[in-house]
């Protein structure tokens, strides 16, 4: 009762990175609230899950193991989570803002009439005073996310409905083992009590999951382009620079929407979160959603024709000018000084 729950996504027996990141966040919030951290894993052949999640400080792991439960399907997973939440009454529940979590989360929130906030970039505990009702709330979950074109940061709360639900993208929270020997209890759910045959109405005919070929998250150097790059052709300059420096190409959402570059490369609140050694932002104005995905980079170079671009304020080097002029010079002087 009144604990923190994390829904753990499973792919090929592996717990998803985003779920481990959420367990880490959940553990620290559970300590603050002096409650337990609980996890639910739904799938098939879940024997290895316990070993993977316990080190993150899980007090109770619920397993729903049945061959019909893998791969993920909306209705059976919803039924299990909804029933378990009705029994366990968590105060907080987290899911990854992934294609699974964003399919499941709203469904569960709708069934339980509880609030859900998508794509949070920060989660804190705090109090709230409702002036109208003259009511004081203690220890609410502050769900913090950029909103409305990124010009504002909104703090969302769910004062009265439980659980307080939030989704978070992969890479936003840090993943950290609490104690490799941490031992929580494992509860095997009797699946037949949680799902009915009518939940299994979708037949998965074909499924191809691939490990992303790109490794933008792991790249030490990222050359990212925005709408200001101007065209698909101009993105070639960024590719060249990335290749010379041994980095990857990233992009802002505006560049992806404009079709300059594929979606997989999008950095920001609704894309990847990266922390490279060097981030070179080309023609990126620097909306908060974009900055949310890159501001923890060790060094930032901003190249922009606009000397007032918001990105400049978080950059270590600000270059005002045209990328077509500046990037070739960067390549030239890199090559000259590394020979």
């Amino acid at each position: 009762m009144n604990n923190i729950f994390v829904y753990c996504e499973i792919e090929d027996g592996q717990v998803a990175e985003v779920s481990l990141e959420l367990l880490t966040k959940g553990r620290s919030l559970a300590n603050e609230l002096k409650c337990k951290l609980e996890a639910i894993a739904i799938g098939h052949k879940l024997d290895g899950v316990e070993k993977q999640v316990m080190p993150y400080g899980v007090d109770t792991l619920y397993l729903a193991d049945d061959k019909r439960l893998y791969p993920y399907q909306t209705l059976p997973h919803t039924s299990i989570v909804v029933k378990l939440f009705e029994e366990q009454k968590p105060q907080i529940a987290f899911m990854g803002a992934s294609s699974i979590g964003r399919d499941l989360g709203p469904r569960v929130s709708s069934a339980l009439h509880s609030g859900l906030t998508a794509d949070c970039t920060s989660l804190l505990i705090g109090d709230h005073y409702d002036k109208k009702a003259d009511k004081k709330y203690e220890n609410l979950l502050y769900q913090i996310r950029p909103a409305f074109g990124g010009n504002i940061i909104a703090t969302i709360i769910n004062p009265d409905c439980r659980p307080q639900m939030a989704t978070v993208r992969e890479g936003v929270m840090k993943k950290e083992i609490l104690d490799p020997k941490y031992k929580g209890k494992v509860v095997n759910l009797d699946v037949s009590k949680y799902v009915s045959d009518s939940d299994f109405v979708v037949e998965i005919i074909e499924r191809h999951m691939e490990k992303s070929k790109l490794n933008i998250k792991g790249a030490p150097i990222i050359v990212a382009g925005g709408y200001g790059v101007g065209s698909k052709e101009n993105f070639r300059l960024l590719n060249e620079l990335a290749e010379v420096l041994g980095g990857e190409v990233g992009a802002s959402r505006a560049a992806v929407d404009a079709g300059y570059v594929e979606h997989e490369r999008q950095i920001g609140q609704t894309g990847l979160t990266v922390r490279p050694k060097l981030y070179i932002a080309c023609g990126i104005s620097g909306q908060i959603q974009h900055r949310a995905g890159m501001e923890q980079s060790a060094q930032i170079i901003a190249i922009n024709t606009d000397p007032e671009a918001p990105i400049n304020s978080i950059a270590d080097y600000v270059i005002t000018g045209d990328i077509a002029d500046i990037i070739p010079k960067m390549i030239k002087y890199y090559k000259k000084n590394t020979k």
């Binding site: 509880s114 502050y142 940061i153 009265d160 901003a302 304020s313 950059a315 010079k329 960067m330």
Partner: peptide, 30 residues
């Protein structure tokens, strides 16, 4: 069920940035 507790306008915390020009010497020293 969800309420907006507060809205903050984004205030940029200015870093100590080096402003450089696109001249060859500046790019090379960077």
């Amino acid at each position: 069920p969800t309420k907006v507790k507060s809205i903050e306008n984004v205030v940029l915390q200015a870093k100590d940035s080096k402003i450089i020009s696109s001249a060859d010497a500046d790019i090379e020293s960077m």
